[in-house]
Amino acid sequence: MLHIHCPYCEEYREEEEFSVVGEAHIIRPLAPEELTDQEWASYLFFRKNPRGLHHEMWAHSHGCRKFFNMTRHTVTYQILETYKMGQQPSITTEDTK
């Protein structure tokens, strides 16, 4: 059971209030028609599965219903930061922790 800081409610809540969405920072191409099938497929289907730091999107489903992003370590399950939609992570390598 993770303990997750909701950047909108500005406090920690239990994992049962949240749902995980998937990899963060996947941007929908502005002109899908101009992409090759392969490019489109990589947007649609291909996701990272790193051992270590991962940026992922969560939603505070039972709370404020807001989506936000999280930098999480996939081995230790430590959450290094959560940040609002539209913001960039401040932690991108393990050294900075």
């Binding site: 749902s19 969405v21 929908r28 999107m57 939603a59 489903s61 807001k66 989506f67 939609m85 539209g86």
Partner: peptide, 13 residues
């Protein structure tokens, strides 16, 4: 509802 919110909050705010 979650689908609508997802697109609004993350792609088309």
């Amino acid at each position: 509802l979650a689908w609508l919110e997802l697109w609004h909050q993350t792609e088309w705010p």
